[in-house]
Design a protein around this nucleic acid. Sequence first.
DNA 1: TATTGTTATACTCTATAACTATA
DNA 2: TATAGTTATAGAGTATAACAATA
Lengths: 166, 166
Amino acid sequence: MPRTAPSPKSAEPAPRAKARRPRAEPGDVFDFQSNALGYQLRLAQLRAFDLFFEMLAPLDLSPARVTALSLIAMSPGTNQAALAKALNVAGPSALKLVDGLESAGWIRRVEVEGDRRRYSLQLTEQGQARLAQLREKLAEYEARLTTGLSAVERQQLMDLLGRLAR
Amino acid sequence: MPRTAPSPKSAEPAPRAKARRPRAEPGDVFDFQSNALGYQLRLAQLRAFDLFFEMLAPLDLSPARVTALSLIAMSPGTNQAALAKALNVAGPSALKLVDGLESAGWIRRVEVEGDRRRYSLQLTEQGQARLAQLREKLAEYEARLTTGLSAVERQQLMDLLGRLAR
DNA sequence: TATTGTTATACTCTATAACTATA
DNA sequence: TATAGTTATAGAGTATAACAATA
C-alpha cells in the first residue's frame, strides 16, 4: 500500500514548458488517500491483522475465532445458532468457526439431552488450560500494536473508534 | 457483532448456591473484546466498509478501486506492474482492479509505442468527467463516517491511526 | 534472461438456498 | 411449521505458478 509520498518535491525546478507530463503529486485534487480517514483505517486494520496472525497463528486462532472462543468461554453451553447471532454472521460461517475451534482442540460439541437437534458448545480441558496463555498472548499483541502510544492515547483511540462504529 | 454488554447486571441478586450455571459476564477474564483495540479497529473498519459500499457502489467502486483510480489519476500513463507495486498487491490482483475500472468506464488501456508488452493506463473522457462527482461523494462519505466527531477529533484519530500503521 | 501481462488454480471469508433431523 | 445444524454452491478477495509475447 502507498503509505506516504515518495519524497517532497517542492525543491524541484519548475517544469520547462511542455517538457514534462502533467503528473499530479500527493495532496492534489486526485489524491483520495492522504486525508482520508477510511483509508487510514484500512491501513491500520491491515497492520493489526498482520501482527495478529504473526503472533497468534501458532495457536490456530484468527481474530474471528478469538471472538467466537471468547463468547463460548463467557457463555458455556451456548449453541451455534446463538453464536451466529451474537457474531452477526450466517449459520454456515458460525459452523466453520466452530469446526476450526474444535479441530484445534479448543472446544467440543456436546449432545444436549432433551433436544437432539442442537449441540452444547463447551471448552475442552485443554482449551480451558490454554486460555491463560491466550490471555497473555493477546495482552502482548495489544502492547505491540500500540507501541509508541501512551495509555491515554490508546484510550483516546479506543473512544474515537467506538464513536465511529457506533 | 457483539458491541456491548446486553445490560449491566450489578443490580442482580447473587447466585443461590448451585442454582446457576457459572456464566461469565462481559468484563470478566474471558472477555477478549471489551478492552481490545484490535477488536474496536475491526468494528470501525466494518462500519466504514458498509458505509462505503452503500454510498459508492452506484459508481462501481470499492475502496481498493478508488485507491487504484487515484493512483492512475495522479500518474497518468502508469502501467499495471507499477500499479501492483504501488498498491502492494500481486500482479493478477492489479489486473482485476484494472479490469473492473475499465469495464466500469473509468479508465482505458492504451498501447505504448516502443514497448508492445505494456499498456498505458489512462482515464477515459467519461472517467475524467466523473472525477469531480467522485470527489464530492468521497467528501460526503468522510463526513458521514465522522458524524459526531469534531474536526480536531477527526485529525486526532487520523494521527493515532497513522502511528499504529507505521 | 528479464519484464509485462495473462491464465489457471487455489485458499479464505462471506453469503444464500436447499436439505436432514428433530421439535 | 419452525428450528438447529449441515451441505452445496457462489462470489469477492487474496495469493502462487506457469505461460506467451516482447524486450
